[in-house]
């Protein structure tokens, strides 16, 4: 009798646990499914555009003006806008982020660390429109005073504000990687007579390098996808230029501005989907790189 009850309970529990596993698994699959659906949605909507305008036109045209009487479909000005802003942003963010990470994980005493770390986390949670406002109203005036460009809102302005937004992401991911370097490696280094700086330079950074690279890739991915702050900061003129002090329009800004204007199903609408697809592929590849670097080169210590 006892054993029977025990068995029944056991079976009920097994069913319940199986059910929970199923539900959680469905949640996991759902996110993959959504990713796949987004991709399919972008492709099916942009295929008619590529058929009528052509890949060559899209990738070599230097003018983007979908609403002109003779529509121009060159994605290059948008692409260079995005690349210019994100990569200059990355160039500014990487050294600062790296310095910040090294300080936080290796040098700062625990009191300072306990204040700085949450502060950086809060920085990551500030809505991007606030950064945009700061860039448009304050930062632009400072740049005006230093460089005196003819465009008050320009790519540099966007790059700096993106750098500020990239630093917290970079720091939190790469700090984890540095913390994961086991204690005995450091101790071994000190035992060999290495100084603190030598230990950081030749032991800890190389050991944490995959994590650091991944953090940079993630931060760039975030920058490429950022819309509101760059839209407000860069002045939104879709010109094909590599000059850091002119106004540019990024792919995200073009999407945000032009989508509500395009009639559903029109060529403009499909063209914007093509831009969306390109943007999706770029961020996807960047994230993929981050992931591959992490899983392939991250050394595991036991």
């Amino acid at each position: 009798m006892d054993t029977k009850i025990y068995k029944r309970e056991n079976r009920a529990r097994r069913y319940a646990e199986g059910g929970i596993t199923g539900i959680l698994g469905a949640c996991g699959i759902l996110s993959v499914l959504i990713l796949a659906l987004v991709f399919i949605f972008l492709i099916t909507n942009s295929i008619p555009f590529f058929q009528s305008v052509g890949l060559v036109n899209f990738f070599t045209g230097t003018q983007w003006d979908p609403f002109a009487s003779e529509a121009m479909w060159g994605v290059l000005p948008l692409l260079t806008g995005t690349i210019l802003v994100s990569f200059v942003g990355a160039i500014i963010a990487i050294p600062i982020g790296l310095g910040c990470t090294i300080y936080l994980s290796e040098l700062a005493d625990s009191k300072v660390k306990k204040i700085l770390k949450p502060a950086i986390e809060i920085l990551a949670g500030v809505p991007s429109v606030i950064y945009g406002l700061f860039a448009a109203l304050v930062l632009s005036n400072w740049i005006m005073e230093i460089f005196d460009p003819s465009y008050r809102l320009n790519a540099l302005n966007g790059a700096i504000i993106l750098a500020i937004m990239m630093i917290p992401i970079q720091v939190s991911v790469s700090e984890e990687a540095m913390n994961a370097v086991p204690r005995n490696l450091r101790e071994a280094s000190y035992a060999m007579g290495a100084t603190r700086w030598e230990t950081i330079k030749s032991v800890i950074i190389p050991a944490a390098l995959p994590g650091i690279i991944a953090s940079i890739a993630l931060a760039i991915g975030r920058a490429v996808g950022e819309t509101m702050a760059v839209l407000m900061a860069t002045g939104n003129a879709s010109q094909f230029s590599f000059d850091i002090l002119t106004s540019v329009r990024t792919m995200t800004a073009a999407l945000a501005i032009d989508v509500p204007e395009a009639a559903i199903g029109s060529l403009q609408y499909q063209g914007l989907f093509a831009v969306g697809l390109l943007l999706f592929i770029i961020t996807f590849v960047i994230n993929l790189i981050a992931d591959m670097v992490l899983s392939k080169y991250q050394e595991t210590y036991k």
Binding site: E70, G235, S247
Partner: peptide, 13 residues
């Protein structure tokens, strides 16, 4: 007269 704006024009909402 229906011609396109200069690509240098900054566009605001």
């Amino acid at each position: 007269d229906g011609e396109s704006y200069s690509i240098k024009m900054q566009q605001f909402s």
